[in-house]
Each structure stands twice: as structure tokens, then as C-alpha cells.
């Protein structure tokens, strides 16, 4: 399954990490990974329950987190899902939510492996 990370451009994030300095950069990466994982997990849980209200907060977080990490595709998916769930959780919205949740979890892994060195 495509993980939505083909357009991942971490250059903006790398610049922010350089502004932060080594100690704070490590802290930012650590928490970015954790926040992405937590939001992906919360989205997965809410999706399982079919609870669109509970989906709002993790989607809101993923809009910002995926964008900050430079994952343009995932950011767009999060924006699209935020706009769609207002109308309910139909098949298309479910597929989008699942794709976003999977992509966010993959992004968290790649942040740890590729930038966390």
C-alpha cells in the first residue's frame, strides 16, 4: 500500500532543527515521532468506533504535524479528511482515514530511522 510519503521533503524541518541546536533538535524529533504515532493511533481507534467527533482532534493534529514534517501528500489527505467528515463517515472518507493513519505511522518510523541519527 502506498504510504503517501513519495513527496516527503524534510528540508524545512531540517532547517528548523538547525535553528534549534543539537539538544533541542533531538527533542523536537523525539516528540514529533511520538505526536505522529499518538495521532495515528487515536485516528485508528476513532475510525474503528466510527466516531467522527473523536476523529477531529487527531486530524487537526495531523494537518499540522504532517505539514511541519514536510509530508505534503499526507498533509493534503488530512485537510481533505477534515473537510469530508463533516458530512459523515462514508466509504471514501473511511478509505482516506485509513490511508492517512497508515501514512502517519510510516512517517513517524521514517523520522526515527532517517533523521534521528
Amino acid at each position: 500500500m502506498p504510504d503517501g510519503l513519495t513527496k516527503w521533503d524534510p528540508s524545512g524541518l531540517l532547517h528548523i532543527l538547525s535553528l534549534a541546536g543539537p539538544a533541542d533538535a533531538a527533542l523536537i524529533l523525539h516528540h514529533l515521532k511520538d505526536d505522529l504515532s499518538a495521532a495515528a493511533h487515536a485516528l485508528d481507534h476513532a475510525l474503528t468506533l466510527g466516531d467522527t467527533e473523536a476523529m477531529r482532534h487527531p486530524i487537526h493534529a495531523l494537518v499540522a504535524l504532517c505539514g511541519t514534517a514536510g509530508a505534503a501528500c499526507l498533509h493534503q489527505k488530512a485537510c481533505d479528511l477534515r473537510d469530508q467528515i463533516g458530512a459523515g463517515l462514508d466509504t471514501e472518507a473511511r478509505a482516506l482515514a485509513l490511508s492517512l493513519q497508515t501514512g502517519a505511522a510510516r512517517l513517524a518510523e521514517r523520522l526515527a530511522t532517517e533523521l534521528g541519527r
Binding site: I16, L19, A20, D24, L27, I28, H31, L32, D34, D35, A61, A64, L65, T68
Partner: peptide, 15 residues
């Protein structure tokens, strides 16, 4: 409330 974002904004403002 999102920790990583809070740290990112802090880094930018301090810079």
C-alpha cells in the same frame, strides 16, 4: 498542546 509543534515554534521564536 502538541509538544513537537510547541518546540518548533519555540525554536523559531528564539532564533
Amino acid at each position: 498542546d502538541t509538544i513537537s509543534l510547541r518546540l518548533v515554534y519555540r525554536a523559531i521564536a528564539m532564533a
